[in-house]
């Protein structure tokens, strides 16, 4: 992986800022923050060579808590910003991060096209099946019969979005799932995702203890995926379609060539273009 060059070693602490997170005590995002910094330390990528881009939501506050270049975008737009950044500065390690509301609802369109474009970057979604920042509304990954939201007191009645299936169908080159309760595993998944060329998608189940306290029980259901990562998209599709959402690990590892347009001008001048069109 070109973007990650061998450098003097760093510790996770080198990637943390001194801004104290404002997340609720017990929020899964604390662990994800720690996993991201661990993964970067494992890769020994200098902080100034990393860009972390987010959207809006609780988890999207994450760039402020790191010591790398960060950008707090608008709601749902982390991926287009990260795409532009990576294309203009291909030598950087670019990570986009955010929540399920940000990434799959208002930013859902960008998710599909970022997978399809397959730019070499990593997208980490802290999925808690709820909009936390606006105080507990159903998100696209919320079960249709969840009735605790004041906005949908009878449940949404809408089938949940299946991010991994959609990522695969849209062309993501690496798909993994992890759990914030296992920060070492998350760190490994993030490091692998960054190493893998092309668009890598990591879903990290990250409980919202305030609006979804029942998610504390996720720990009991989480298990290592029983089979190794496949490179076969059809097999991956079958696994992801039948998966209950609690298998963690690398689930798909593709070999598509990343998209990186050449920054070199292709024509010398407008005159060259005119020549091509001369009959």
């Amino acid at each position: 992986m070109e973007a990650v060059s061998a450098c003097p070693s760093f510790s996770a602490r080198d990637y943390k800022s001194d801004v104290k997170p404002v997340w609720c005590p017990g929020c899964g995002d604390y662990s994800v923050l720690s996993s991201i910094t661990k993964a970067m330390a494992e890769l020994s990528v200098p902080p100034e060579n990393v860009a972390l881009v987010s959207g809006i939501g609780c988890s999207s506050r994450i760039p402020a808590y790191t010591n790398v270049f960060g950008f707090h975008g608008v709601h749902g737009r982390a991926l287009p910003i990260a795409t532009g950044l990576k294309i203009s500065r291909p030598e950087l390690t670019v990570i986009a991060s955010g929540g399920d509301g940000d990434g799959f609802s208002i930013g859902g369109n960008h998710f599909m096209h970022a997978c399809r474009r397959n730019v070499d970057m990593t997208y980490i979604v802290m999925d808690n099946e709820v909009y936390g920042m606006t105080k507990g509304q159903a998100s696209p990954t919320t079960a249709p019969d969840w009735e605790k939201s004041k906005l949908t007191p009878e449940g949404t009645g809408i089938n949940p979005f299946r991010p991994l299936v959609i990522a695969l169908a849209s062309g993501a080159n690496f798909i993994a799932r992890s759990f914030s309760g296992d920060p070492n595993h998350s760190a490994r998944m993030i490091a692998e995702a960054i190493r893998h060329p092309g668009f890598s998608f990591v879903q990290i189940l990250s409980p919202c203890v305030t609006f979804r306290p029942e998610q504390r029980d996720w720990k009991a259901g989480i298990r290592q995926a029983p089979v190794d990562a496949t490179t076969d998209a059809a097999r991956a599709a079958r696994r992801l379609m039948t998966d209950d959402g609690f298998n963690i690990g690398v689930l798909f590892r593709g070999d598509r060539k990343p998209f990186q347009p050449s920054m070199k001008a292709r024509v010398e001048s407008v005159r060259d273009l005119e020549k091509e069109f001369r009959i």
């Binding site: 208002i106 909009y131 920042m133 606006t134 105080k135 509304q137 004041k150 906005l151």
Partner: peptide, 11 residues
């Protein structure tokens, strides 16, 4: 669609 400080209105 919820957004601060409108959310409680639509709720």
């Amino acid at each position: 669609y919820p957004i601060t400080p409108q959310s409680s209105l639509v709720e």
